[in-house]
Design a protein around this nucleic acid. Sequence first.
DNA 1: CATGAATGAGGATTCATTCAT
DNA 2: AATGAATGAATCCTCATTCAT
Lengths: 214, 214, 214, 214
Amino acid sequence: MLAPAAPTVKDAALVESRRRELAATALQLFRARGYHATSVRQIAETAGLSVGSLFNYFRTKEQILHFIYDQTQAVIEEGLQEVLQELGPDPDEALALALDRYFTLIDRHQDHTVLVYQEFKSLDRRAKRQVIDRERRIMDIFGRIIESGIAREVFRPHPVAATVHAVAAIGHMWATRRWALRGTVTLDEFKRAQVTMILQGIRRHGAGQEGGDV
Amino acid sequence: MLAPAAPTVKDAALVESRRRELAATALQLFRARGYHATSVRQIAETAGLSVGSLFNYFRTKEQILHFIYDQTQAVIEEGLQEVLQELGPDPDEALALALDRYFTLIDRHQDHTVLVYQEFKSLDRRAKRQVIDRERRIMDIFGRIIESGIAREVFRPHPVAATVHAVAAIGHMWATRRWALRGTVTLDEFKRAQVTMILQGIRRHGAGQEGGDV
Amino acid sequence: MLAPAAPTVKDAALVESRRRELAATALQLFRARGYHATSVRQIAETAGLSVGSLFNYFRTKEQILHFIYDQTQAVIEEGLQEVLQELGPDPDEALALALDRYFTLIDRHQDHTVLVYQEFKSLDRRAKRQVIDRERRIMDIFGRIIESGIAREVFRPHPVAATVHAVAAIGHMWATRRWALRGTVTLDEFKRAQVTMILQGIRRHGAGQEGGDV
Amino acid sequence: MLAPAAPTVKDAALVESRRRELAATALQLFRARGYHATSVRQIAETAGLSVGSLFNYFRTKEQILHFIYDQTQAVIEEGLQEVLQELGPDPDEALALALDRYFTLIDRHQDHTVLVYQEFKSLDRRAKRQVIDRERRIMDIFGRIIESGIAREVFRPHPVAATVHAVAAIGHMWATRRWALRGTVTLDEFKRAQVTMILQGIRRHGAGQEGGDV
DNA sequence: CATGAATGAGGATTCATTCAT
DNA sequence: AATGAATGAATCCTCATTCAT
């Protein structure tokens, strides 16, 4: 969870709900105009609050950004942890399922995904570290699946980091390269193509299932 | 070429060299501090010019950004066109060579690559379109190689867009996810792993060469 | 007495006690951080009240300041009136006693003394006049002693205003120039030195008692 | 001298003259409305500049305040150093001359004198120290005269700090208590009364000249 | 062509005060 | 009588851009 640090307002439930509203509004504006081009006043007004009120829920503009990051990363991490429970021992199937879920989550949080690429550097050091730590935890989920596949001699023993971050890159691309994909590939086609490529790409014996049957 | 639009100064050679200097300086500053956190004054001073002078070579701050994008994209496109000449008919080998070159170019222009992700939205519509058009041309190079592979029934007939942009995503990741890769994978290891994964991943018969022989 | 103007709350005793508490808290904060750097919210919280409540006891922030001034000036005036009762006819002795009491009171209300110098101008015209009137009354106490001394030809016939305000300046300096005096002079040494200087300084025949016998 | 720290503008002479103008304007406004109640915009506009320009000459509002302090303290210190050259060996006469000059300087810089009392606390630590150091140097000038008088057994051996700061307090009072003195005492009467009181007040043998013959 | 002083719109943030509960 | 959430004017400061020299 993101460090609380809400000024003035004491009603925790109110704080939570207002923060959510504001974050949602801000996310849209940040994506539409960019973080710097979006003024705090715009956020407040779009959310139907006064500037003063906004600052009762976030202490700085940057905190809004951090909150957005934290909130969605949490959802993604939880979503993946959830699917982890359901995974069988077959690395092929496990990775396919995890990838499917990951791509679904990214699809659901496209704006957030792009925003991380764009405005990560606008965070302060502490926030940066938090975001990176969380991202590392998310990557570790795939890392463990792949390592188990390597241990079982199903996957090739390639540098896990390279593979794991390729997974992230390919997933994120669904959000960052929408301009190219929109209209040419559906989410399902995208999933099938990428899952196939990744699975077949890292499998030890090129032979076997043609993957993609997810 | 980037739309001209240099004010006042007539000497074309001077304009070109000054622009290059300024762009190089600006790229470093943008990467170090971010586009918005970098002031035009800083760029000018770091480059050893006066603010007034800078505005003789670029009409707006945004134009500097656009110039940087355009310049590096041109180098990348040319670098790929170059390698295209040398490609034989074997799609496997062709793709491997093109990928290798592409990853090399991205490694050489990491700052630029990251900057595109971060500040693309700061461009105006015209500039955006130009950058996207160029990116599409770059992608088309891979597109043609892959299509030819599909035609020869070497590659699986998956949506080309998905594959092509996966190539981009994986390449860019070398720049955008340095924080994760630095220290764990060398450029050569990275190249080998990704080229293998991509080739094996899209090949029709999973069997065959184990890739990586680049 | 300070002009009433307490809103809403009717219970006079409650009003008085709350005002005292708030004023005491505010005085400390004003001295520590400055009047402008202290927010009403801080005052309320430090005093253990809600902002809303505070505004039931003071209508404006300025009114708090005014109240502090008024309250302490009253104490000082009363303290001096008190000593006036005990004064004998000897102007030398009378002045010495009054000065001693005055310096003691200032020592006890250093924060207030400094605050008057700093934030007098933050009062509105009416409040300013009230504070000045009270200060004049305090000065008059010394004025009358000195005039009586002049009439008895014990003190030199110098402009009384000059002498009287020198007394104030010297007394206040114990508070305003603490940075210089702290650690070098004790209150008693200070008193002895200043009383001696003042008495000997205004006495008609420089000769006579060497003062300091306070 | 005040640490330079002027941004942007390079023409040193221009910086100096603009700073003087701005400081003069600011001093008036600060005195009339108070430091906090005066906006930077007001200062700029009153001085006939744009806000942006003002910030080419001072980096912060506080720096203006510091500059004002520094500038006038320098004048006062120099003025006293000057008179030091002309002093003979007679402590009585020396002190009388120094006091006369000091009171004259304070009269000439009343606004500054009051402002120090009011807004000293608005300075940051470094600036505070600078102002105090300078004030100490000014006090030392009187300190040395008095000590020499004590050494020659002309003045009583009272704590020098107490006397020296009484001098300051009495001098400053001409500025801080104008509201009481204006109209009742002229500068010359004030000087004569205070010089007499101080000299006679600290002299060893109450006898001797009746002072005031300045 | 170069310089650098001037501009002023615009941004984030604070805070005294109000008022519905 | 107490609470504390809401308000929005006002503040300091930055920075891209212009233009006289």
